[in-house]
Nucleic acid binder design. Structure first.
Lengths: 147, 147
DNA sequence: TATTGTTATACTCTATAACTATA
DNA sequence: TATAGTTATAGAGTATAACAATA
């Protein structure tokens, strides 16, 4: 009974296995990593992408409204929006003295089309692992958890 | 047709609504925030909690094995484990010249019992919003997405 | 006075590269 | 030569508090 190199790592018990919070975090992290890899060649971050697509769908919207919908705090929207403006993707026009209306520039529309396709194929890669029923159930369950 | 104060924020269209990646991220963030609030009074972070409970369930395990199971890179395990040791919750014993075996100290076991209860009530608060079928379906769907 | 946006700053988690020591 | 762990550093996202300007 000698004990040689102890080559295989012993399989550990994971007490978090059946926890929603843990599984949501791991699954979300996996998808975010995959998305990040796809977005890398555009130089855009996931958060910037979300904001860009939201502005495309809501031309003239306010910065704060975008943040509220995506769960991004006003203080964190500032540098995020500034980067998009700096890249020439988003245009800010003064709506009144304290509000900025956001719209895509021509270049922003081109970029949005690109990232939209990237995002769609990313989503499809994961959705295709689930049948329609499981997919709908997953979205419904998450909506219930958030309500 | 005058335009008064434009009081209500116009409801925006969210083109990410039906995206798994987006919903997983939002739902995960919600649960993490709730967990963070519960853990606040213990002074522990979510990641530390996960490691602590994993060590409790696998006394004598290696640092690298814990990281591998939780998806934490070796470089990031170092300060995390060091903090647990520093707090007197985890004990490192030299297994061979290059491996550390991790176990809970007496104080670590007490702490683990506390955070375990906190985690259970956190989980229960969310699981109770779903019926058993939806809960099982949710876990199964996430397992499929990760496989 | 309430709302919109801003600045500054800190925290948590993650990522990479280069390194040491041991098997 | 491969493995376990480490150091240093950067990045992404989020949080809070204090503030200015405007309605």
């Amino acid at each position: 009974m000698d004990k040689p190199h102890n080559t295989a790592t012993p399989t550990l018990v994971n007490p978090l296995e059946a926890h929603l919070g843990y599984q949501l975090r791991r699954t979300s992290a996996l998808m975010m990593a995959e998305l990040g890899a796809r977005l890398a060649r555009t130089g855009m971050r996931p958060a910037e992408t979300a904001v860009l697509l939201l502005i495309r769908a809501n031309a003239g919207c306010q910065q704060g409204a975008v943040g509220a919908l995506l769960g991004i705090k006003p203080a964190n929207m500032v540098p995020l929006a500034a980067r998009l403006v700096k890249q020439g993707l988003v245009e800010r026009t003064r709506a009144d003295g304290r509000t900025h209306a956001l719209s895509l520039t021509r270049r922003g529309r081109v970029r949005a089309a690109v990232v939209s396709r990237l995002l769609d194929s990313h989503e499809k890669a994961f959705q295709s692992r689930l049948d329609r029923r499981a997919f709908k159930g997953l979205l419904a369950a998450m909506a219930t958890l958030r309500k």
